[in-house]
């Protein structure tokens, strides 16, 4: 496993601070459930940065990490749905809760292909929402143009998720060293895009 460089540590530290900043300032005007959903999403990003700093890249091999990191796209997408697709709130909340439980249970009970499939479905739906919804809202003029940055963040975290999932399945899209080299920067860019995107709707 690749050793963590000082630059990696610096990037992860900034990621954690940015996520912490977003949690502290919240999203102005958002309903409390949406704010809590964003808090969980950014909280998972913050903890991911800090725990990677402490434990190094070996942390990525833990099933626990995979389950907890599912919270990032699920919670952020739930916040977006709560705010911008009010008609889907209950259904998506149900999907988020069941999806999280499914990922956790599958990882513990039937590791391997079923667990990866559950992860792919849950991540796929949540990732598509984070990527597509802000872009759509920006294009339609229902949100400021800069809100599309949240979608960019969604795309970036989707790329990260894909790289790590295929790596975990033993069919890496890129060499492991390359993935781990770009991961801290990818996390920082993702968090920056989210923070910048949400800043324009403040």
């Amino acid at each position: 496993m690749k050793e963590m460089s000082p630059l990696d540590r610096f990037l992860l530290l900034i990621t954690g601070i940015l996520a912490g900043y977003q949690i502290a300032i919240g999203i102005e005007g958002a309903a409390p459930p949406a704010v809590w959903a964003y808090t969980v999403g950014f909280g998972a990003l913050l903890l991911a940065g800090v725990l990677l700093l402490i434990f190094g890249f070996e942390l990525l091999g833990s099933p626990f990490t995979i389950v907890v990191s599912t919270l990032i796209p699920l919670a952020l997408s739930l916040g977006l749905v709560w705010e911008y697709l009010p008609g889907w709130r209950t259904a998506y909340l149900l999907f988020a809760v069941l999806g999280f439980a499914l990922v956790g249970l599958a990882r513990m009970a039937v590791p391997g292909r079923p667990a990866t499939l559950a992860l792919a479905i849950v991540h796929g739906v949540a990732g598509l929402l984070i990527f597509g919804l802000p872009l759509l809202l920006s294009v339609r003029g229902e949100a400021p143009a800069g809100f599309a940055l949240v979608g960019v963040g969604g795309a970036l975290i989707g790329v990260g998720g894909l790289l790590l999932s295929f790596l975990k399945m033993g069919r890496p899209l890129l060499p492991q060293k390359t993935i781990l080299t770009v991961l801290p920067l990818l996390l920082l860019l993702t968090t920056s895009a989210f923070v910048a995107g949400f800043a324009v709707v403040q």
Partner: peptide
């Protein structure tokens, strides 16, 4: 502390509990 900072402390606390339970 405002709610925002309370939320942040809760997240940091959750990390502590998560690790302790782990």
């Amino acid at each position: 502390l405002t709610w925002g900072y309370l939320r942040l402390i809760m997240v940091l606390s959750a990390g502590l509990l998560l690790l302790a339970i782990n």
